[in-house]
């Protein structure tokens, strides 16, 4: 009983900021509440959900969002691990570099997205100016669907790799140095020690990083809005952007809530998949 009492504040908070909005959205997704109904809610049953299932744009955006999350988080993990290993070594100027590495993460996303938009501008951005001065044709980075998508991934990787590196660096510092010494005494090479000592002991940190980053990447919004506006041909549009368009531009709140819930389900499945993976890896180890 006292346990329940002690937990009550936290539970109430969770109810207020998590469960209540979710229920509210679930209710809204069963209403037609749009500019066509004068913004008044009208119960429509599962009409919004039927529309969602048949909405090619929702599925395109879901695919793009998932692809964006997997590719960018994957790249960030590999690069972040590399940086973390480098920053874990002792060398002159390490402190300065550690601080500098964090800069992209400290920059507000909107600011850095504006920066990338300018860098990749065609034809007046620095990269295209460089290409042209070398006698090459300028590249429409943000005007071609494939290139714009890749540019968005690049900007996200640039921004969030420091975050991954920071968390993994903290994990590396938890590994006792004598383990490495013992491994070396047994004749293990540094390469082997990475696979046999570092990575297994870093595993919990890697999963935490993946969980954080996956949730963030699946909800990507500001980067897309500023860098590409979702275009061209909606190739960089994420689910969050689609939900925003429905609510703020189209004034279709019922459907926007349905898209948000669809996104929530996607996030739930991804996180559950990740946790299952973690359990299987643990059992095998």
């Amino acid at each position: 009983m006292s346990a329940l009492l002690l937990m009550a504040p936290a539970l109430l908070l969770l109810l207020a900021v998590f469960v209540w909005p979710l229920l509210d959205y679930a209710w809204l997704s069963l209403q037609a509440q749009s500019v066509f109904t004068g913004l008044q809610p009208e119960p429509v049953g599962l009409a919004n959900w039927q529309r969602l299932l048949a909405d090619g744009r929702f599925w395109q955006d879901a695919g793009q969002t998932l692809r964006f999350a997997v590719v960018s988080v994957g790249l960030e993990l590999v690069l972040g691990l590399g940086f973390a290993l480098l920053l874990h070594q002792r060398w002159r100027g390490r402190g300065v570099v550690r601080t500098l590495t964090l800069l992209p993460w400290a920059l507000p996303t909107t600011v850095m997205a504006l920066g990338w938009r300018w860098i990749f501008n065609d034809p007046n951005g620095p990269i295209n100016a460089l290409l042209q001065s070398l006698g090459l044709a300028s590249v429409p980075f943000l005007a071609s669907p494939q290139l714009a998508w890749q540019t968005t991934v690049l900007a996200d990787v640039w921004k969030t790799t420091p975050f991954v590196a920071l968390l993994l660096l903290a994990g590396l510092q938890m590994i006792p140095a004598d383990l490495y010494e013992a491994f070396a005494l047994e004749g293990g090479s540094p390469w082997q020690s990475l696979w046999r000592v570092t990575l297994p002991l870093l595993r919990p940190y890697i999963f935490i990083v993946l969980l954080f980053r996956l949730a963030q990447a699946l909800g990507v919004f500001d980067l897309v809005v500023v860098l590409t506006g979702g275009g061209p041909a909606s190739s960089t549009e994420s689910l969050a952007v689609y939900a925003y368009l429905n609510a703020m531009r189209f004034l279709d709140f019922g459907y926007s809530a349905t898209v948000m819930l669809g996104m929530f389900v996607l996030l739930l499945i991804s996180s559950a998949g990740l946790l299952l993976l973690q359990r299987r890896v643990q059992v095998r180890a």
Partner: peptide, 23 residues
Amino acid sequence: SPGYAQLSDILQRQLSGVIAGGE
């Protein structure tokens, strides 16, 4: 139309595919 923003969004998306995506 009250739905103009959406009508325009539908058109923009397809036109952008024609111009930038070779549709």
